[in-house]
């Protein structure tokens, strides 16, 4: 039964009409920006890695093994992303960078800090505490779950 008076319109036809009118953002431009910003964040990380494995950095942190170096780099990048978020800058970067600001681990930091700031108005327990992982939660949940499955298989294989 027709629920309205648009007798010549149905879902299929409307989908086609929408396709005709749809405005697409420029894929090329988006990709170039994502490449530059995403690559840029990685270069910053490489710079920090270089810093802590040579010269002055070694004096502060001592000689680090490979795992420790990557942990320090992650720490620094999360700090950077969180800082840029707190300074109200990261969303402006994100507007232009697209995936280039989402995929690096700075984007993970941004997705934890931004809801914490936003939901401050609902209090520290039910606002900040409860909502902090509203965006980043799925990443941790499914990442952890995948690691457990992989670990289980590895355990069984290495036993058998």
């Amino acid at each position: 039964m027709e629920s309205d008076n648009l007798t010549k319109l149905d879902d299929k036809k409307y989908e086609w009409m929408q396709k005709k009118r749809n405005q697409k953002s420029s894929l090329l431009k988006n990709c170039v920006m994502a490449f530059l910003f995403g690559g840029g964040f990685c270069v910053i990380a490489q710079g920090y890695k270089h810093f802590i494995t040579s010269g002055i950095g070694v004096k502060f942190l001592g000689e680090l093994d490979e795992a420790a170096v990557s942990a320090h780099v992650a720490l620094f990048m999360v700090f950077l992303g969180a800082l840029l978020t707190a300074l109200n800058v990261y969303d402006d970067i994100g507007k232009h960078a697209g995936a280039g600001s989402v995929v690096p681990i700075t984007g993970f930091a941004n997705s934890v800090v931004s809801p914490a700031m936003e939901f401050r108005s609902e209090g520290h327990i039910l606002g900040v505490g409860a909502q902090m992982f509203v965006v980043a939660g799925p990443v941790i949940v499914y990442g952890t779950f995948a690691s457990v499955i992989v670990g289980l298989i590895y355990y069984l294989v290495s036993r058998g």
């Binding site: 992650a74 700090f79 401050r120 900040v128 902090m132 690691s147």
Partner: peptide
């Protein structure tokens, strides 16, 4: 190790994010 290994290795980043987020929610 199946249950501890994964998160243990990424804990630095997650803890940093939580601590910073909490501080940020106070000051900004």
């Amino acid at each position: 190790g199946i249950f501890t290994g994964g998160l243990e290795n990424v804990a630095t980043g997650i803890v940093m994010a939580i601590v910073f987020a909490l501080i940020a929610s106070f000051v900004t």
